[in-house]
């Protein structure tokens, strides 16, 4: 993979394809008027289509649920799984917490960062927008340490030399 830098979050706007826009509208219709208690489910559903949530989407979500826009912003900002800036199409979460550290997670983090051309301290997003690398607290798979997730896929007992094959290019 070629060297890459982080995608700049400044002044970023989502550009939805027509298909994405239709899907988002369907979701917003489903949540119409449902109120605050459906904010997290709604954010999850929308972000599953769009990858991240810009100010415009946040405003539409607020309007659909009939809640204050500031609440939607605060919630997006609070939770690590909601993104208010562009992220890669696939999120790679490498656990670097205690049990994984004991099983060699530092080498896994380095291998991932090297393969993606990213900073091993903080991760980041590849220039082609394919991957975001996150150095993650315990992912609840300590019995399979060292552990990482590629999107929703779980990979336990990872060895550094497996990393290139696991991450590959993008399919």
């Amino acid at each position: 993979m070629t060297t890459s830098s982080s995608v700049s979050p400044t002044a970023a706007h989502l550009h939805l394809s027509p298909r994405q826009a239709t899907a988002v509208h369907a979701i917003l219709r489903r949540y119409r008027g449902k109120g605050s208690a459906y904010l997290l489910p709604c954010l999850h559903d929308v972000q599953a289509i769009t990858g991240w949530l810009d100010a415009d989407l946040a405003a539409q979500i607020a309007e659909s649920l009939d809640i204050p826009a500031v609440q939607v912003h605060n919630v997006i900002e609070f939770y690590a799984l909601f993104y208010d800036h562009p992220v890669g199409r696939t999120i790679v979460r490498v656990c670097d917490d205690l049990a994984c550290y004991l099983a060699g997670s530092e080498a896994i983090v380095r291998a991932c960062a090297a393969h993606l051309g990213l900073d091993p301290e903080h991760g980041g997003t590849t220039a082609d927008g394919a991957f975001t690398l996150e150095i993650h607290p315990c992912l609840g798979r300590c019995e399979q340490a060292p552990f990482l997730m590629i999107g929703d896929e779980a990979h336990g007992f990872v060895r550094p030399e497996q990393v290139p094959a696991l991450l590959g290019g993008e399919a």
Binding site: S36, A37, L40, L65, I67, N74
Partner: peptide, 24 residues
């Protein structure tokens, strides 16, 4: 309900806030 990546939301009252659509 699916959490959204916040350890604090395991604390019971933060979890209520989260279900109610607020910060944890």
């Amino acid at each position: 309900r699916k959490g959204a990546g916040a350890y604090i939301c395991g604390e019971e009252t933060a979890l209520f806030e989260s279900i109610e659509g607020k910060r944890g």
